[in-house]
Amino acid sequence: MVKSGLSTLDATILSLLAYAGSAQLAAMPLIATLAPLWLVLLTAIIVNLRFVVYTALLRPHFTHLSAGRRLWLGYIVGDIMFVRFTSLLQQEPNHPHKVAYYTGGALANWAIWQVSSLIGIFAASAIPASWGLELAGTLALVALLVPLCRQWPALAGAVTAAVVAVLAHSLPLRLGLLCGVIVGIAVALAVDHQSRDRRARRRAASERFLS
């Protein structure tokens, strides 16, 4: 972040408040070139859109809590905690301590992320750019992505999203990513629909055969 032209103090405050790795990285070059504020806000929202998906899926588990509590639980949502919490709920949907599990994990994730981020901000000048450390972040996303593609519709959608995102890469504001996501979801839905149709037809055929 510091390498994109913001002062150490700015980067520190931004990290502590926004808690948004990829959105910060996307917004930083815009801020450094004094881009209009609406563009900074829109870019951050677009890059953060996946959290709308996460919170939509997690929402039913927190509806019994107060609105203030839910505001903070939403703020600390992260990629890794979302995946861990979802897999806990797959094993035990009504885990008695699920809110505590979520809160503890997400807060630990917040603290570790902030400490690592601050180390990064202050050590930025010490690590040569040629080490390509930002690749480690992408590899972490690979590890989150692979288990999500176990079913055909999701795999088809992911491959489509990847191809479209690369083809539309030249669009401004990283809008190529959003194009990839939209086309990918459409393909996943179509594949899902078709496999469901095929299953229904097979069931109807066997019922006709039996009757």
């Binding site: 989150l144 795999l155 959608g157 489509t160 990513l177 996501v181 979801i185 996943a188």
Partner: peptide, 16 residues
């Protein structure tokens, strides 16, 4: 919404 996370992560990873 169920398919969105896989698509979003795939798009980010591929572009990177």
């Amino acid at each position: 919404l169920r398919f969105a996370p896989a698509c979003a992560l795939a798009a980010i990873v591929a572009a990177d």
